[in-house]
């Protein structure tokens, strides 16, 4: 092999590694990324049972029932409510009437089982994804204004 061929072979080999990795990254992305939805989109977007999603909305007033470490509450976008169950400790700023993002999946047509509950951790923090969706779809008008103001 000439020097030039050698160099081409090395560059070819390196590119092959990088390309393989990129394909692998793309496949991993399809397998692991989870969609962000608000409650009304659970039906309209045909979210399947056990499909991992992030659900954003407002903890409906007077819906939070806790028994020890078990929490049941409704997440609403002022149009549709979704019942959520979570076993664990909710964040310090988890409150009724405030924004929340829960990660998990529907375990049947009625109930969303959360593996993680995120609430804001600063009074200036707004779950931006959620506010964007609310504004786009005209949901809960009061909430988004206040959150953005």
């Amino acid at each position: 092999m000439t020097r030039k061929q050698k160099r081409l072979a090395i560059i070819g080999g390196l590119s092959a590694v990088v390309l393989t990795a990129v394909v692998f990254i793309a496949i991993a992305m399809r397998g692991t990324a989870s969609f962000f939805v608000v409650p009304s989109e659970i039906q309209t977007q045909n979210i399947a049972i056990n499909q991992a999603v992030r659900l954003g909305g407002i903890v409906k007033s007077d819906s939070w029932v806790k028994e020890g470490t078990s929490h049941n509450f409704l997440v609403t976008d002022c149009k549709t409510d979704i019942a959520v169950h979570y076993d664990g400790i909710v964040p310090d700023l988890f409150r009724e009437g405030q924004e929340v993002i829960v990660e998990g999946a529907l375990i049947n047509n009625e109930l969303f089982e959360a593996t993680n509950v995120l609430a804001k951790h600063d009074e200036n923090y707004v779950p931006k994804d959620m506010v964007d969706k609310f504004e786009e779809q005209g949901l809960c008008p009061g909430h988004t204004d206040e959150a953005y103001g």
């Binding site: 990795a21 990254i25 991993a28 692991t32 990324a33 969609f35 992030r54 994804d129």
Partner: peptide, 24 residues
């Protein structure tokens, strides 16, 4: 960056978390 770019161009909001990074 992919979630940011996807959101900017299509409005689809996804989150890419630990499972993706652990794997790749």
């Amino acid at each position: 960056l992919y979630p940011l770019v996807l959101d900017a161009f299509t409005g689809i909001k996804i989150s890419v978390g630990a499972p993706f990074f652990d794997l790749t």
